[in-house]
């Protein structure tokens, strides 16, 4: 049986982390919000994501330190991000928004500002003090080996060790991503909220007009 090592990501893993963020954003569709919202090509999106990760700002979904990777035979084959929302009084919305505003060209920000009110229709706020699970991805050849659940357990365990007072973990998933919803149910997450926009124009920018909030209670 193949052995996997789980470890915190490093700057050398950035290309795989970029792939993880891109695939998680696509959620099994062909729509990449980085291209539709910011007007970027996929290759430029990857370049800017790489630049943002390499700033090594901790505490949000664009932080290298938020990612745990699974490695086998010296090759990274899966990754998952999670962080404690508002840890050290730092809001992840501030941290990620700062990176976006600092790295992205001004015309991308202008384009996004026109679309932002529409995207708010499916926005769900992060809950301070809880674990937020972000982008996750398992390379095709390594699926159906329970890696996603193992990574979820490892990353939650790691964050709980750092802050044992955390009681809940959450993840937000596009409603169309049935595979991710099922994978999270397998990792003991339950659907606690669905936010849906009646405006189908939103489907021009993101993979679904529905966002699902899933929660796992962390029993001590």
């Amino acid at each position: 049986m193949e052995e996997f090592i789980f470890r915190t990501a490093t700057i050398n893993d950035v290309p795989f982390l970029v792939e993880t963020i891109i695939e998680a954003e696509k959620s099994g569709s062909n729509i990449l919000s980085w291209t539709t919202i910011f007007g970027l090509s996929e290759s430029d999106s990857k370049r800017y994501l790489s630049d943002m990760l390499k700033e090594e700002i901790d505490g949000c979904e664009l932080s290298i330190s938020s990612f745990l990777v699974a490695e086998t035979k010296g090759q990274v084959v899966a990754a998952l991000s999670a962080w404690i929302e508002g840890e050290n009084n730092e809001s992840s919305a501030f941290l990620k928004g700062n990176l976006l505003s600092y790295i992205l060209p001004n015309d991308c920000i202008q384009k996004a500002s026109v679309i932002q009110p529409l995207l708010q229709e499916i926005h769900i706020d992060y809950i301070p003090g809880s674990i937020q699970k972000g982008a996750g991805y398992v390379a095709k050849d390594y699926r159906h080996r329970d890696l996603f659940r193992l990574l979820t357990d490892e990353i939650i365990g790691k964050l709980l060790k750092r802050n044992p007072s955390v009681t809940d973990a959450y993840t937000q998933i596009y409603g169309s991503n049935i595979a991710a919803i099922k994978a999270n149910q397998k990792a003991d997450f339950k659907i606690v909220m669905v936010k849906e926009s009646p405006n189908e124009e939103i489907l021009r920018y993101v993979p679904s007009n529905k966002k699902v909030l899933m929660k796992k209670e962390l029993y001590k």
Binding site: F94, G97, S101, D125
Partner: peptide
């Protein structure tokens, strides 16, 4: 006041605010 005190203050909104 921080992002968690105000509805819809997400990363995209924050990026636009900074800009």
């Amino acid at each position: 006041m921080t992002a968690s005190d105000v509805d819809n203050w997400d990363s995209l909104s924050h990026m636009i605010i900074i800009n």
